[in-house]
Amino acid sequence: MTLNYVVALAALLFMIGAAGVLIRKNPLIMFMAAEMMWNAAALAFIAFARNYHDVTGQVMAFLIIATAAAEVGIGLAIMVAVYHRRHRLDIDEISELKG
């Protein structure tokens, strides 16, 4: 049952990514961890698509990759804009909004 191993790997990647978002303080690392969760989903999609001999899952994986690229483009632009203003990136310091 190779499917089970691949899905287990995807679940592991997903959990590492989720833990990364929750634990790390640097927005760049948090963003990378979130992208890792996306890629874990893409891996699971491909594994299931191969198992079912169905092309939908592979299409979904491509859509995930394309959307992730768009998101990275926007995300890095926002981070550069924030960094320009503060010269530090730490999620605890970026906290003018509170309450």
């Binding site: 995807a10 997903f14 990514g17 989720a18 978002v21 927005p27 948090m30 963003f31 979130a34 992208e35 969760m37 996306w38 874990a40 989903a41 893409a42 699971a44 995930i64 998101e71 926007i74 995300g75 926002i78 999620i91």
Partner: peptide
């Protein structure tokens, strides 16, 4: 952005 990417990751998985 960070929360959106995180929640989209959860949704996707």
């Amino acid at each position: 952005l960070l929360l959106g990417a995180f929640s989209s990751g959860i949704l996707l998985f």
